[in-house]
């Protein structure tokens, strides 16, 4: 398939996943924030903003409601509204790759945000608003599973989804390391709920809610679809199915990096992570994942001779790796 089309599909999925993550995070934290008086609010949101690298931009926009900033802030490149705008722009360039249903869903959520209706719903009935955004993302993922062939393009979409998901889960987890105090029960629950993991977590740990257990679950769960290990395994599988090279080997830098990340999450345990420092581990992982994204681009979008002479390339990467 066309290299650019692969790139567009990859970014379309990333932006949709990103919009969903941010929405879940705000939904959860907004309900937790009710426990705080107004003066303490900015302190409450600080770790969240830090984890998604939005702290500085937000502080330039004082007097804006944080929810409105994260959903509609025009100055915030990763606002949910912007995510949908970019997702749709990418989709528009590859409409022939999507099913009509997928396009219609994406276009509708885009129109909902563009029309101002989204902002009105957010103010009047935030719960309905959150549900609508999250439901869109789930319907879209369901449709991509059920209405288009699982071919090369689909693999690039999956790569976008899982790279973004691994990244977002690691960021949610990272909010715990940004707290000024020991994470409270409320903080731990908020992280689990942002990753839709509270029920699954309870089943595994029977209520032993601790920082170590939460980190263990979100980093290393074998079967929870939002854990970092699960996402990395999916990235690994999809990369190998693109190249046809068996897992455990590599034919390009993206495969090598993801293989080494997979080995890391497969053969480390939470005790080692906690003694090395949770934040440090997350940081290393995030850096590796960003590199994986870059290497996918270099492998499948750029031509070999353009790699050596970046300036000669007419094909500049239009969409920066965010954050």
């Amino acid at each position: 398939m066309l290299s650019r089309v692969a790139d567009n599909l990859y970014w379309m999925s990333r932006y949709i996943e990103r919009a969903e993550s941010i929405t879940r995070m705000v939904e959860v934290n907004q309900s937790s924030s009710l426990e705080f008086i107004e003066d303490a609010l900015s302190e409450f949101w600080e770790p969240v903003l830090k984890a998604i690298c939005a702290s500085e931009i937000f502080n330039e926009h004082t007097k804006i409601d944080i929810g409105q900033f994260l959903f509609f802030g025009s100055g915030f490149p990763n606002s949910v509204k912007n995510c949908f705008l970019y997702a749709r722009e990418n989709a528009r360039m590859v409409r022939d790759q999507l099913s009509v249903e997928m396009w219609v869903e994406l276009n509708n959520i885009y129109l909902f945000f563009q029309s101002g209706q989204a902002e009105a719903t957010f103010l009047q009935n935030p719960q309905e608003f959150f549900q609508k955004v999250i439901k869109f993302s789930l319907v879209f993922q369901g449709l991509s599973g059920a209405t288009i062939p699982h071919d090369e393009g689909w693999r690039f979409m999956a790569l976008g989804t899982y790279l973004e998901r691994a990244d977002q889960t690691s960021r949610m987890l990272d909010t715990l390391t940004f707290q000024k105090h020991e994470p409270t029960r409320l903080d731990l629950l908020a992280v689990l709920r942002s990753c839709v993991a509270q029920t699954a977590f309870r089943r595994q740990y029977k209520g032993e809610l601790s920082m170590t257990n939460v980190a263990d679950y979100l980093l290393f769960s074998r079967d929870f679809p939002r854990s970092i290990r699960f996402s990395i395994r999916c990235i690994d599988e999809n990369l190998h199915s693109l190249s046809g090279v068996p897992s455990g080997n590599f034919s390009n830098e993206a495969e090598r990096l993801i293989g080494s990340s997979l080995a890391m999450v497969n053969f480390t345990d939470i005790k080692i992570v906690m003694s090395n420092g949770l934040h440090q581990t997350i940081d290393d992982l995030q850096r590796k994942l960003i590199n994986v994204g870059q290497c996918i681009f270099e492998t499948y979008v750029l031509l070999p001779f353009e790699l050596q002479s970046a300036e000669k390339s007419t094909f500049i990467q239009a969409q920066s790796q965010q954050q």
Partner: peptide, 21 residues
């Protein structure tokens, strides 16, 4: 058929190619 933009095509030695994965 593929819908391409200028940047998807490249001319080398008087032939035109499209860039694919």
């Amino acid at each position: 058929i593929e819908i391409v933009e200028g940047r998807d095509l490249i001319a080398i030695d008087n032939y035109v190619f499209m860039r694919t994965t």
